[in-house]
């Protein structure tokens, strides 16, 4: 059953990727990227990674779709056709893709339990989480307690990224402060 569901989802992902590449209307591309994110969230649910699926659905399909639509509002919604065929990027893409696929053959078999990642600290977290933190969701206890220092770094990363984007977007705020115009109200 899981194999069937995964086959359908991954086929749809591949189809949508090809459609995105061939599509010239950027509005359709943005919507299809949202569809891609929802399909990816479904794949992650099948893989029992519900936390990641939730993030993918809310960030990938929700917020980033809106931000991309806002970008389209500021620019144009059609992609100009490539003036000449791009040969070198094609080879770069094929080379990197081939290297990545070759790299997957070095990975341990999917779902095998005797890999290093499952045998060092993970069993201890699973055994002691409730005893030490009273938190049944081990994802949360690892994220915020055992690896709390890492998560603080991640929060700082979000902070830094946010400040950087704000500086890029609002750097010219003063020049336009006297003018009033319309505001974004959707399409």
């Amino acid at each position: 059953m899981i194999v069937l569901v995964m086959t359908v989802l991954l086929t749809l992902l591949a189809v949508i990727t090809i459609v995105i590449i061939r599509q010239r209307s950027l509005f359709a591309v943005v919507i299809l990227t949202g569809v891609y994110s929802f399909l990816m969230a479904s794949v992650l649910i099948v893989l029992d990674a519900v936390d990641v699926a939730m993030t993918e659905a809310s960030v990938g399909a929700g917020v980033s779709t809106v931000l991309l639509l806002a970008t389209l509002y500021l620019t144009q919604s059609r992609e100009y056709p490539q003036p000449r065929p791009a040969i070198i990027p094609l080879f770069v893409a094929l080379g990197i893709g081939g290297a990545l696929i070759a790299g997957t053959f070095g990975l341990p078999p999917f779902g095998s339990a005797d890999t290093p990642i499952h045998n060092r600290t993970a069993p201890r977290y699973l055994a002691k989480s409730i005893e030490e933190t009273t938190v049944p969701n081990v994802v949360t206890s690892v994220l915020a307690d055992y690896r709390g220092y890492d998560t603080m770094g991640e929060t700082v990363v979000i902070f830094t990224a946010g400040i950087g984007v704000l500086l890029l977007l609002l750097g010219r705020r003063r020049r336009y402060s006297s003018e009033t115009g319309e505001e974004i109200q959707g399409e």
């Binding site: 917020v63 806002a70 500021l74 902070f159 990224a161 946010g162 704000l166 977007l169 974004i184």
Partner: peptide, 14 residues
Amino acid sequence: TMLAIFYAFSERGR
């Protein structure tokens, strides 16, 4: 962060 970035985009529209 999410909301501030969205506000910044809407500001650019002006």
